[in-house]
Design a protein around this nucleic acid. Structure first.
Lengths: 198, 198
DNA sequence: TGGCCGTTTTAATCTGCATTAAAATACGGA
DNA sequence: TCCGTATTTTAATGCAGATTAAAACGGCCA
């Protein structure tokens, strides 16, 4: 899914675009959407601000792409977990582990979707849609777990909110590299899953 | 703690200042610090942007005060819980309930401290300091709970991160009024506490 | 070497917004 | 009613940063 741009599309082009999105995500997470200038982003790439326009139509599209990327990564974690199968608890655990790993791993920083109101109306609606779908799908897993007895009978809406919040907040405190990442991926989900056990 | 401003200080002045901080917090939570103009904030109060300067020195100070307020509210919840006493688990539960109640309650929206890098260096250091103290104090409670057997032996750093993340994220999904607030305050903490039980 | 294409920069332009100063309004008390 | 203080507005000013257009650079192939 993706390049609707009328720009050339050498292999290198796509790679650099990806780097751009990560650099932007890092900046946005630190200083917010409006708080980061295109100069901030381009500096991470050793470029000038104007160079960004070669890869993307403007700042608005940049956030939009970042948020789409964040949604896609979350969705992938969830879908993979579902496909792997198991009890509700097992699927939920698998998802959390995968999503946490994505946050701490090679994918580089994932944009926190915290400034959705800043998006253009159409884009915002799309992102909200993706977000709602994600929540709904996760809550369904919790429901299944309650059904099959692997998860304690809880308010799935609130429980989902809590787990998503904890995950979404990760970029706020995690800035480490590989070594510490491994530790986080191992220990962080433990507490979250513990609250689900009957 | 507080008015170092050289402005007049009628009783009404303080009240309006408080309303200003809440309006600002709401705006900041929605569109981020740089994303909200002083016009946005003043509109919530039926004022002009310039009127804000009667109450506060500038936009920078506005965030700073918002963040200080957020920190103070969190600290109050924690200190009250500690004073109420009990096992580690009881204190932790009490804290979470109080903090969640503050988020959903009359205190109006509490600013999410998500754009700390945008603060002036001195202010930033102060806020970070408060934030660190808060985390440390909460982790100590978890340690106590592990010690007295009321809390499962867990990684207190990660567990603290998870719980704080879940709480900090509340303003992102809670926009309701009294009725729904009561339900949230009752059900939201349940899951969080469940993960602590041995 | 010369020219084309992909990439980046330089040098404007334009707009939104924080900030300030001066003027206007509201209102309680003499 | 008139004055003075508290509050708010109107009307500049100035800058930062997004966006654009045109020029420059770099390498690859003929």
């Amino acid at each position: 899914m993706v390049t609707d741009s009328t720009k050339p599309s050498t292999p290198a082009f796509g790679d650099k675009r990806e780097l751009l999105l990560r650099a932007a995500a890092r900046c946005f997470n630190e200083k917010g959407y409006s708080g980061t200038s295109l100069k901030d982003v381009s500096a991470h790439l050793g470029l000038t601000d104007a160079a960004i326009y070669y890869y993307i139509d403007g700042k608005q599209q940049l956030v939009y792409e970042c948020y789409k990327r964040a949604a896609a990564i979350g969705k992938l974690a969830l879908d993979d977990a579902i496909e792997a199968g198991g009890t509700g608890l097992e699927v939920a655990t698998s998802y959390v582990q995968r999503h946490v790993a994505a946050h701490c791993g090679e994918a580089g920083p994932i944009a926190i979707m915290s400034e959705i109101p800043s998006l253009r109306p159409d884009d915002r609606e799309h992102i909200l849609q993706l977000s709602r779908e994600h929540s709904a799908k996760f809550e369904k897993i919790l429901d299944q777990g309650i059904g099959d007895g692997s998860i304690h009978d809880c308010d799935v809406r609130m429980t989902g909110n809590a787990i998503m919040g904890a995950i979404n907040w990760i970029p706020k405190w995690f800035h480490g590299d590989g070594e510490t990442a491994a530790r986080v991926v191992r220990t962080f989900p433990q507490y979250l899953m513990r609250g689900l056990i009957p």
